[in-house]
Design a protein around this nucleic acid. Structure first.
Length: 241
DNA sequence: AATAAGTCCAACCGCCTAGCG
DNA sequence: ACGCTAGGCGGTTGGACTTAT
């Protein structure tokens, strides 16, 4: 037994939206706001599924959308965020004002993948393609500990970091080698958290996602409002441990 | 000019999850 | 604790458009 359909499909339109449908949807949302997508089609006089309305609004009709080509800066931001977050298109879109997850996903699949390939970088792993031809992929473990300090020598409470450890499979040959890739907050010593400057690693340090400039994401665990100007310059440090 | 191949992107589908009773 | 529902997400598809032959 399958899942019940999200709406009555027998009497709903599918495919491309007409100008009239767009106008109805825009007019309804202007008057009543977003939300309750299931009942919206009926209330707005649309023969569409609620999901379809939501998608049309979010991806195409929203007034704050930035239309047009992606800039070189946006390209690089998308690449950087994808390397950190993977295919979390909605999270990436949240960092690019005026762009939608669908738009970024499409752009990634049609342009950026090719761009990275031409640079000799594997778009899935963000590592040089040559490296992927190595016979043995070392085991890797990824852990996120928000209580870790920026540096092992200087662990401070509250400064989050993401540790990715590459454990060499053949420990006998290189017993002392333990590569650690660490994604750490940007290199500024001060953040603006709310309106107040603050010290990284201090009692009121931002959560990991804030430190990446992602204070609006739902992963953000901070209750205070972080300054939206947070840069996205998360640095990646590879250190020998 | 015709048409095959490639590209792009809006829209759909199905799964997951938070919230609610 | 459990089941149900709506909303949200990522993967995929289909058709319009462009380019190559």
């Amino acid at each position: 037994m399958g899942r019940s359909p999200c709406c009555e499909k027998a009497h709903t339109n599918k495919g491309a939206w007409t100008k009239e449908e767009d106008d109805r949807l825009i007019a309804y949302i202007r008057a009543h706001g977003e939300g309750c997508w299931r009942s919206l089609p009926k209330a707005a006089g649309l023969l569409r599924c609620g999901k379809s309305c939501r998608l049309r609004w979010i991806n195409y009709l929203r007034p704050d959308l930035k239309r047009g080509n992606f800039t070189e800066e946006e390209d690089e931001l998308i690449i950087k965020f994808h390397s950190l977050l993977g295919n979390k298109w909605s999270l990436i879109a949240g960092r690019l004002p005026g762009r939608t997850d669908n738009e970024i996903k499409n752009y990634w699949n049609t342009h950026i993948k090719r761009k990275l390939m031409s640079r000799g970088i594997d778009p899935a792993t963000h590592r040089p393609i040559n490296e992927l031809q190595r016979p043995k992929e070392p085991a890797k473990s990824i852990s996120f500990n928000p209580m870790h300090g920026i540096d092992h020598q200087e662990k401070k409470e509250g400064a989050p970091c993401l540790d990715i450890k590459f454990e060499e499979p053949d420990q006998e040959k290189r017993p002392d080698l333990n590569l650690e890739l660490r994604i750490s907050p940007p290199h500024q010593s001060q953040y603006l958290h709310g309106d107040q400057p603050m010290q990284l690693g201090g009692r009121n340090s931002p959560c990991f996602f804030c430190s990446l400039g992602m204070q609006n994401s739902k992963e953000c665990s901070c209750n205070t409002r972080c300054n939206g100007s947070g840069s996205v310059s998360a640095s990646v440090m590879i250190s020998m441990v």
